[in-house]
């Protein structure tokens, strides 16, 4: 095979993975913006979304557009409950306590859902709601799955953009992430905005879960751990707290991961992502798009 078309083909595959990472990374970056917390449970919400979609498609045969809506709702509720039950009582606690709680929530979701009575710890085949078709574009082929992932990701990002930069909720969210105390003084309900941020982030992770299930049709209760951490790295790479930074970071991480698997060895892909993390934290801790250096 011609090397150029091979690289292009892998690039398309990387964009497919990167689009999913971007959707998850948005949740991390928004929650970090308003709460200064790495929400470790976010990767598990992504997993939860994939499982909800699996049950809706496989057990109830619900049409795909309804699957998206119901999954987003379910994930939004899960995100809301996690924030209310686990994180809200710790609003004034030391930062590390909040971080440990996040780890605890993540472990709880994984092991609770892996009980045999619930989702079981086994790998489950995710039913594709449509057949995969490839379109040959001379240099590379693109599948309808990839086209759907790109379109849905693009639409989600566009809606998120409208929400954050064109509505009052978005303005309030940006204000809270800028300065919580001052935002409160200006009459913004901090708790409401934090809950709202979790809801938006969790529903995006839900979309990511469905797309991941369609693209890589094998789901497992522990599937959220590595994509979750990689998406967080993507958010750091793009500049944490910056919406479009998360998208750029996600795409870069996705492409890097696929290229490492294609040209080196798939066993090294996790390692390379963490080397990227170290490089970012050492040389440009504010990320690609970040300007202020205050996180380190």
């Amino acid at each position: 095979m011609d090397i150029l078309s091979y690289v292009l083909q892998q690039g398309i595959n990387g964009l497919q993975l990167g689009a999913v990472y971007a959707l998850i990374a948005l949740g991390y970056t928004m929650v970090y913006g308003v709460l200064r917390l790495i929400n470790f449970a976010h990767g598990d919400i992504f997993m939860f979304g994939a499982f909800v979609a699996y049950f809706l498609i496989a057990k109830f045969g619900i049409p795909i557009y309804l699957v998206f809506i119901i999954t987003m709702l379910a994930c939004a509720i899960a995100g809301y409950l996690i924030e209310k039950i686990a994180y809200k009582p710790l609003r004034d606690a030391p930062k590390i306590s909040l971080l440990i709680t996040a780890v605890g929530v993540s472990l709880f979701l994984e092991y609770f859902l892996s009980l045999n009575a619930i989702f079981t710890p086994n790998y489950i085949a995710f039913p594709r709601p449509f057949d995969v078709k490839g379109y040959d574009l001379s240099l590379f082929t693109i599948t309808n799955v990839q086209i759907i992932i790109f379109i849905i990701t693009f639409v989600s990002l566009f809606l998120l953009y409208l929400l954050i930069y064109r509505t009052n909720y978005g303005r309030a969210m940006r204000a809270v992430s800028h300065d919580k105390e001052t935002a409160a003084l200006m009459g913004i309900g901090i708790d409401g905005i934090i809950s709202f941020t979790f809801i938006v982030g969790a529903s995006l992770a839900g979309v990511g879960g469905i797309l991941y299930g369609i693209a890589y049709p094998q789901i497992n209760v522990f599937m959220g751990i590595m994509p979750g951490i990689k998406s967080f790295i993507a958010a750091v790479l793009g500049g944490i707290g910056i919406i479009h930074g998360a998208v750029i970071g996600g795409l870069i991480i996705g492409i890097c991961e696929v290229f490492v698997s294609a040209f080196l060895s798939s066993t090294f892909r996790d390692g390379v992502i963490f080397i990227i993390l170290f490089a970012v934290l050492l040389f440009k801790p504010s990320g690609i798009l970040g300007k202020r250096i205050e996180k380190v």
């Binding site: 917390l37 930062k95 971080l99 951490i229 790295i233 750091v236 934290l281 996180k295």
Partner: peptide, 8 residues
């Protein structure tokens, strides 16, 4: 690095 970044 501090707190959460050190953790990651």
């Amino acid at each position: 690095l501090r707190d959460d970044f050190l953790a990651i």
